[in-house]
Amino acid sequence: MSNNIEALPSILDMCCGSRMFWFDKQDERAVFSDIRSEEHTLCDDRRLVIRPDLIADFRALPFADDSFPVVVFDPPHLERVGDNAWMGKKYGKLNKETWRDDLRDGFAEAFRVLWPHGVLIFKWNETQIPTREILALTDEKPIITQRTGKNDKTHWILFVKGKGND
């Protein structure tokens, strides 16, 4: 394990966006990371604020191996969304040509920075891409899943990193 364990918070949110599912959006136990930092006014005049603690690409995280006991991975799940659509602003957008490689790399990075026996909390909405296609992008096997949301399209999936999964 990393020598700087005490210096880092215990949770990494790799794609925090607006931190929408966090009880405490300023939770000091977490490092909130995202590739973008921006603000938008939505059509109903609400503000969408994406302000990560750290600007970073989930495909190449700036942390040492085995840095966190808990990682949250809620990547963009839409590949077909307009440039000015509020869904794209809120959730981000997948690259149509590279999304499989991007998410495969994201899983690899999540497990790389996760402690052995650490927990990965993965969230996916299968409105456009079925969850089975996403789970095929990692060799890790999930242990728990829960479907939620409209028509049960959102999947919360829990993984535990094995001891020798380098």
Rank of each mutant, 00 (worst) to 15 (best):
E97P: 05
V71T: 08
D74Q: 14
E140K: 08
K90A: 13
R112I: 06
S33F: 01
T41F: 03
N84F: 15
F107D: 04
F63Y: 15
I143S: 06
F68L: 03
H117E: 14
L135D: 03
I121D: 05
L42E: 10
P75E: 04
A108I: 07
F32L: 01
I55W: 10
P76Y: 07
D74K: 08
R132M: 01
Q128T: 14
E109N: 08
E79V: 12
A30E: 01
K90H: 12
G88N: 07
S33G: 10
M87W: 04
H77F: 15
W86D: 08
A85V: 15
A136K: 04
R147S: 11
L114H: 07
K90F: 10
G88I: 00
P52H: 10
N84T: 15
R132G: 01
V113P: 01
S37R: 15
P75G: 10
E79G: 06
V119D: 11
V113G: 05
R132E: 13
D34Y: 01
D34S: 04
P130A: 15
G106V: 09
E109G: 03
C43R: 14
F111A: 11
A136P: 01
L54S: 04
N151T: 09
A85P: 02
H40W: 03
L137P: 01
T41N: 04
E28T: 12
K123E: 09
G82D: 02
E38I: 03
W115N: 05
R59D: 01
R36T: 14
A30K: 02
Q26F: 09
I55F: 03
L114N: 06
T148D: 03
R104L: 09
P62I: 08
L114F: 12
M87K: 08
I129H: 12
R104Y: 06
G118I: 07
S33P: 01
V31A: 02
D24E: 11
F122N: 06
E140A: 12
P69R: 13
L135M: 12
D66C: 11
I134W: 02
V119G: 04
T98I: 10
P52M: 09
N151Y: 15
D27V: 02
P69W: 08
Q128F: 13
G106S: 06
R46F: 02
L42I: 06
L137H: 01
I134C: 06
P116A: 11
G149A: 05
A85M: 04
E109T: 06
N84A: 15
T145N: 03
D105W: 13
N151W: 13
F23V: 11
M87A: 09
T98H: 13
E39K: 08
L135I: 05
P69Y: 05
R132F: 13
V31R: 02
